[in-house]
């Protein structure tokens, strides 16, 4: 064996390389079959970033079709409900420049809205029910309809079909559960009164009066 290698160095090298490539090829081939990725993962990733309002403002019948279109090379700036945040996230995912929102498809509204049916005026035509992509409207023919606010994505699609215009898009109010602290303004000019509306910093900010200042240096040293 060793003698053969010494006597035919080129041939044995070729054999060794060929053997190696065959072995790795077999491993790779097996892996390709065994660990085959089902579906299109990029579409799922894009779909996860889209806001799922299913409003169709991008020109596609729902968020997933748009995700598929983006995977197929369509522009990423056609989603008004997602706004710039979604565009940035998509740009990050797809490693492209983040364009600004295409105004052609609508404006981004900062405040979330949900549909509200003025129930006195509803004639029970079921047109909004058919239009709702979320199945978020309850009702039956000639019965008053109502919107399940928790399921409404604020897509607007029910407003247009209503023959009596009894659907309003109402901004969602922040309650105690959805309230959050705001980021501090970068150039704040806070005015503290007994009732301060704008600034609500915790009191620990350094060097402010004798509450902290008096013994401050000594404390720090200790």
């Amino acid at each position: 064996m060793i003698e053969f290698v010494f006597q035919n160095p080129i041939l044995s090298a070729l054999l060794a390389l060929g053997g190696l490539s065959a072995a790795f090829g077999a491993v790779l081939g097996f892996a390709a079959v065994k660990f085959k990725v089902e579906g299109d993962p990029i579409v799922d990733q894009i779909d996860a970033l889209l806001p799922q309002t299913q409003c169709g403002q991008c020109g596609h019948p729902g968020c997933r079709p748009y995700a598929q279109a983006i995977a197929g090379g369509e522009d990423i700036n056609k989603c008004p409900p997602g706004g710039q945040a979604t565009i940035n996230a998509l740009a990050d995912l797809l490693d492209v420049e983040a364009p600004s929102l295409d105004a052609e498809h609508g404006e981004h509204l900062d405040v979330k809205r949900v549909a509200f049916i003025r129930e006195d005026e509803c004639i029970g035509c079921t047109k909004c029910i058919q239009a709702c992509p979320m199945d978020a409207i309850l009702g039956a023919a000639k019965q008053m309809h109502t919107v399940i606010a928790d399921e409404c994505t604020g897509c607007d699609l029910c407003v247009e079909p209503c023959p009596v215009d009894c659907i309003d898009m109402i901004p969602v109010e922040t309650d105690l559960k959805t309230w959050k602290w705001d980021l501090p303004a970068t150039n704040q000019n806070p005015v503290f009164h007994v009732v301060a509306n704008e600034v609500n910093l915790i009191a620990s900010d350094l060097g402010r009066g004798h509450a902290f200042g008096d013994q401050h240096d000594g404390n720090k040293a200790a």
Partner: peptide, 13 residues
């Protein structure tokens, strides 16, 4: 309920 000397407005960041 601190006085203005006690807890004045914080200096800008």
């Amino acid at each position: 309920a601190p006085s203005k000397q006690e807890l004045p407005e914080p200096t800008p960041a």
